[in-house]
Design a protein around this nucleic acid. Structure first.
Length: 436
RNA sequence: GGAGGGAUGGCCGAGCGGUCGAUGGCGGUGGUCUUGAAAACCACUGUACCCGGAAGGGUACCGGGGGUUCGAAUCCCUCUCCCUCCGCCA
């Protein structure tokens, strides 16, 4: 959420910065300014009346104690009471409308974000590792996986539906190994606190991080009389951990890491990445979240991105890091780095992590505050998040990058301790026999 | 699912229609005393919003929402959450 006073006082600047996202926000922005102005007109009026009402209440009390007649004061007071009620309704309505508009406005892009409309205008900032030269045609994971008996698309569809997949045997084990490897790296070497949050969250949490009210169609909502949704990312429970609290500035930055499955309806993505594990309704992810001060948040974004990149370095997977342009950034983000891993079958880099600084945008929605030095004025935190990493896509990257001519897959050495020291996945690694 | 009991400031705990942002205690901060510390004593100790350049002033907040009343932490309705007991269950 943007600061409404800032929208009102610097309307043109805010508008031109938001326009760089390539979306039409003029009407919403004008609503914010209009209702915010109306609000500021109503408040002094209402409060003046309330003040008079408080004074006359005291007078009545005093008079009654002295046994005096109070009917005339009470008459006036009764009239004022009705006025206050009326003005109160007006103010409520204005504030409600202002907040609706405010909740639907995306974050302001940071000045260092390149202006652009599509992913084509993202800026590559660095590249690591060299894509391997194959002396055979590398297979796509959707061929490799089923051939090894470790990925089963048909059975996923049978037990759930399209965009659901079953991993089995060495595939399931590899997924679990990756989760543990990532959690160990981030907790032991990068200083994050491990959290195992609820896999369902309420509407208040989703509003706090920005998925609601605008993107409800992307979520799985629990049927029945529940205010619950499946988590689309652990960013939601992690960022909302301290919702409504005022943290001690000496404890900053707060650094959390969590593994959760993520559930996304992927509405509107029909036809995209229909094959394979790239785009699923359910996928595993290890997520990093930091809460910190405004002064340090951009340094923390750099280290958070580096923490995510370290996973790929240790797994010996080639990747590049791109700075997203204004038009490609998410709703809540002020600045985002995407990390993209090399996929030999597609001969391209594909997103495997997205690391964002939301500045005070989520903090304002979720009421995340801290007191510098533990005392003084409460200030808004800056909230950051990043995948560290998307586990399913990491598994794909390993299968494709480490495949051998005979269809087996070499396990990167960093992962072997998590795979009982095993060096290779071969067809024998499967435990569910193919009967289809 | 059934039956009861609760929700007050960082914490504990009063308050039962007007002088209550709310007694008291603990904790915290500053000070006095002391070579230092402890103890004792004194003062301060929430958040949001509005007006104001500031100083300062005002309004709201006693789990959430609504109502009664000139006036609500106190009365009524409703929702949520927590606790105890019974049933069911991983």
């Amino acid at each position: 959420m943007l600061d409404p006073a800032n929208v009102r006082d610097h309307f043109e600047e805010v508008r031109s910065r938001l326009r760089t996202r390539g979306i039409d926000i003029d009407k919403t922005l004008e609503d914010v300014a209009t209702y915010e102005t109306a609000r500021r007109r109503l408040i002094p009026e209402l409060e003046g009346l309330k003040r008079q009402q408080n004074t006359s209440g005291d007078e009545i009390a005093r008079a009654k104690r002295q046994g005096k007649d109070t009917t005339s004061i009470q008459e006036a007071s009764k009239l004022r009471s009705a006025q206050i009620k009326q003005l109160g309704f007006q103010l409520d309505s204005v504030e409600r409308q202002r907040d609706i508009a405010l909740l639907n406005l995306p974050n302001l892009p940071h000045p260092t974000v390149p202006v652009g409309r599509t992913a084509a205008e993202n800026v590559e900032v660095r590249r690591h590792g060299v894509p391997r030269e194959f002396d055979f045609t590398p297979q796509a994971h959707w061929d490799l996986g089923p051939a090894l008996g470790i990925i089963d698309f048909e059975r996923g569809t049978r037990v759930a539906g399209a965009r659901f997949t079953v991993l089995s045997g060495a595939g399931a084990r590899l997924e679990r190994a990756l989760i543990n490897f990532m959690l160990d790296l981030h907790t032991r070497d990068h200083g994050y606190v491990e959290v195992l949050p609820p896999f369902m969250v309420n509407a208040a949490s989703l509003t706090g991080t920005g998925q609601l009210p605008k993107f409800e169609q992307d979520l799985f909502k629990i049927a029945g009389d529940w205010d619950l949704y499946m988590v689309p990312t652990a960013e939601v429970p992690l960022t909302n951990l301290h919702r409504g609290e005022i943290l001690d500035g000496r404890d900053l930055p707060m650094k959390y890491v969590a593994y959760t499955p993520c559930f996304r309806s992927e509405a509107g993505s029909y036809g995209q990445d229909v094959r394979g594990l790239i785009r699923q309704h359910q996928f595993d992810k290890v997520e990093l979240v930091k809460l910190t001060s405004a002064e340090s948040s951009y340094d923390e974004l750099e280290t958070l991105t580096a923490d995510a990149e370290e996973v790929l370095k240790r797994l010996e997977l080639p990747y590049r890091t791109v700075l997203l342009c204004t038009g490609d950034m998410g709703f809540s983000s002020a600045k985002t780095y995407d990390i993209e891993v090399w996929l030999p079958s597609q001969k391209t880099y594909r997103e495997i992590s997205s690391c964002s600084n939301t500045e005070a945008f989520q903090a304002r929605r979720a009421n995340l505050k801290f007191r510098a030095g533990g005392s003084g004025k409460a200030e808004l935190l800056h909230a950051l998040n990043g995948s560290g990493l998307a586990v399913g896509r990491t598994l794909i990257a390993i299968l494709e990058n480490f495949q051998e001519k005979d269809g087996s897959v070499t396990i990167p050495s960093a992962l072997r301790p998590y795979m009982d020291g095993k060096e290779k996945i071969t067809k024998a690694g499967a435990t569910v026999k193919s009967t289809m």
